[in-house]
């Protein structure tokens, strides 16, 4: 396996002609897509991967300078696409990976013919007329609590490496890698995620774009999703019945149906 594919723990399945690439958001890893991606394996070659610092990625590849902005993560995505020869493909990004996909598609416009952004936000912090959903002070509090709550964080990660008596089908290996995140990298990723501002990038997107918006999403509200829709030229928004920030887990069937209708 090439170093790029190993670095990002890239997993390929499915048998279609086109690629569909799934990118996970802040707080978890490619397991986020485990209820969604199998539905595409008949029509597509599915690509799952972990951002560096998450899941089964190569932690040694983490570089504080490279990953101090989302561009570092977007470069990784483009490298994965190049490595696999991804062209005119579908990109599905959750949460912060929506913007990582947006940046990658601007950098390599031929790579993705369509983008599906699940719970996207171009900026989390309110600024002037713009409503991101959080004040600067709230984001600072989050970042501080991550920095200061080391044991809480570790304890939070502990269940991920315990057994899983109720869901044996997940298997030992998967269970052990659930949302496994290096705490120090996660802190940095949180900062990069919640301080990011991609509003100027939206207008540069040429791929046709679908925005999947949940109700009652405290991380990325409908207002925030609507801003993304207004600013990406060729985009449409579907509001799901699902609530919360992770419809890929709470309402996978709805997510699958919406993506299939779009592509």
């Amino acid at each position: 396996m090439s170093s790029t594919l190993k670095r990002n723990n890239v997993r390929i399945s499915g048998s279609g002609e086109r690629f569909i690439v799934f990118a996970h958001g802040f707080g978890c890893d490619q397991n986020m897509w485990r209820l969604v991606s199998p539905a595409f394996e008949n029509e597509f070659r599915t690509v799952l991967f972990d951002h560096v610092g998450a899941g089964g990625s190569d932690l040694a590849a983490y570089n504080t300078v490279k990953y101090s902005t989302l561009a570092g993560y977007a470069n990784d995505l483009v490298e994965i696409g190049d490595e696999l020869g991804v062209k005119d493909a579908v990109f599905v990004g959750h949460s912060v990976s929506s913007m990582i996909g947006v940046m990658a598609s601007i950098k390599a416009p031929e790579m993705f013919e369509s983008l599906v952004l699940v719970g996207p936000s171009a900026r989390y912090i309110d600024e002037g007329e713009y409503i991101g959903g959080f004040s600067r002070a709230q984001i600072d509090e989050l970042l501080e609590s991550l920095a200061d709550n080391h044991l809480g964080w570790s304890a939070a990660m502990a269940p991920a490496i315990m057994g899983n008596p109720d869901r044996p089908e997940l298997g030992e290996e998967l269970t052990n890698s659930f949302c496994r995140t290096d705490p120090d990298i996660a802190k940095e990723f949180a900062r990069v995620t919640f301080m990011s501002d991609n509003r100027d990038d939206l207008g540069k997107v040429t791929a046709r774009t679908l925005i999947l918006q949940c109700r009652e999403d405290i991380i990325a509200s409908e207002e925030v999703g609507e801003y993304v829709r207004q600013n990406i030229p060729n985009s449409e928004m579907v509001i799901l019945n699902a609530t919360g920030h992770c419809p890929n887990l709470s309402a996978p069937n709805e997510v699958v149906a919406a993506i299939k209708a779009f592509v």
């Binding site: 978890c28 609590s145 269940p159 919640f194 920030h245």
Partner: peptide
């Protein structure tokens, strides 16, 4: 607010995926 974001991005997915979380 911080706890809410943390819960939504970490514990909620964890609960969905493995059916529980502890501690």
């Amino acid at each position: 607010t911080a706890g809410r974001m943390f819960y939504e991005t970490h514990f909620s997915p964890l609960l969905r995926m493995q059916g529980f979380f502890n501690e």
